[in-house]
């Protein structure tokens, strides 16, 4: 068990190292992408370029450059943006993290609860009108583009009916820190949460329904029914428990990807200064240090999420404990 855990952590570090190398090579060592030209600005003289290269260590061999970059990213943390001179990259990313985390955490609560309810109810009432209605609704949820849904929500709550009693509580677009005002935080985020969660509720509901229906055909469900324990217990304690494997895998991966910047569209639509938006901006201006920082940050969450999924497996599925 401990051996497995340690080897898993080692793998994680290796993967992150690999990602950082690849990201570094893509952005700094691709032919034609001369970072010094970007730093020096347009029409810089040849001497300035040489000076910049020297200052930033860009005239050194690649492995040394990589080492320097990592050192400035993780140890001295004084890597600065190429575009907004003087803006330190690490604090900027750190500032954006709570915004993204708040958005994704809240949405995750909604989509897990929603997905569970939709999946279990639809799976248990397979073929009924309730099942069909839920499946149509979830299909709609899966199909609606998130930016469209966000814009419509804004249209309704921010302008059209903002002055009605129903939506007068909605604050203007933007983020309110949890530490500043918990209630304000909640009010500012509840609509983004729903918007982001809609897709996932539909997706998870459908996957869980399929998984439950499959599980309910298993032999052990028949055994459970023969025990005379009531259908609800059979469904929850035996059917759902065993069906959660696919659900948890998906959740870990989606959560990691969203925290890593995948919630970009939602952040843009609701004016949230999160990691997604930061990455988006950095890519537009080819702000290499910022891109590198966000990519490594994102990889950290994706790898972390994978790790958490593996650990969660051990709790959900005892077979995983013995390496089956």
């Amino acid at each position: 068990m401990l051996v497995a855990l340690v080897s898993r952590l080692g793998q994680m570090l290796l993967v992150m190292f690999g990602i950082s190398v690849v990201a570094f090579l893509i952005f700094f060592a691709t032919p034609g992408a001369d970072p010094s030209a970007r730093i020096a600005g347009r029409n810089a003289s040849q001497e300035t370029l040489v000076q910049v290269r020297h200052d930033f260590g860009l005239d050194r061999p690649l492995p040394v450059q990589y080492g320097l970059m990592m050192e400035r990213l993780f140890i001295s943390r004084d890597l600065t943006s190429f575009v907004n001179r003087g803006q330190k990259v690490v604090p900027t990313v750190l500032e954006a993290i709570p915004v993204t985390l708040s958005l994704v955490f809240g949405a995750a609560v909604f989509w897990v609860l929603g997905g569970l309810i939709v999946g279990v109810v639809a799976g248990a009432t397979r073929g009924s009108w309730l099942d069909r209605t839920l499946m149509i609704l979830s299909l709609i949820g899966v199909s609606i583009p998130v930016f469209w849904l966000g814009e419509v929500a804004n249209l309704i709550t921010q302008s059209r009916w903002h002055d009605s009693w129903l939506f007068s509580w909605v604050p203007p677009l933007g983020y309110i820190a949890l530490t500043d005002s918990p209630w304000g935080w909640f009010k500012a985020l509840v609509i983004p949460w729903f918007t982001l969660a809609t897709l996932y509720i539909g997706l998870y509901g459908r996957v869980l329904r399929a998984s439950i229906i499959e599980t309910m055909q298993e032999d052990f469900i028949r055994t459970a029914r023969a025990k005379g324990i009531g259908e609800r217990r059979v469904l929850i304690n035996h059917g759902l428990r065993t069906s959660l494997v696919a659900f948890v895998t998906m959740f870990g991966l989606d959560f990691g990807a969203l925290v890593g910047g995948g919630a970009l569209l939602t952040e843009v639509v609701f004016g949230l200064q999160g990691v997604g938006k930061l990455t988006y901006g950095a890519l537009q201006t080819l702000d290499l240090p910022m891109i590198l920082a966000t990519v490594i940050y994102a990889s950290f969450f994706v790898v972390m999420a994978n790790f958490v999924v593996d650990v969660a497996f051990v709790f959900i599925d005892p077979r995983a404990r013995d390496g089956h």
């Binding site: 028949r222 023969a226 025990k227 005892p318």
Partner: peptide, 22 residues
């Protein structure tokens, strides 16, 4: 369910799949 499992119980063919794995 008041009868099943209490007064009449059943054993199935394949013990590999008859028990809930979790």
């Amino acid at each position: 369910d008041a009868i099943r499992g209490r007064q009449v119980a059943m054993v199935f063919q394949d013990p590999m799949t008859a028990l809930t794995p979790v």
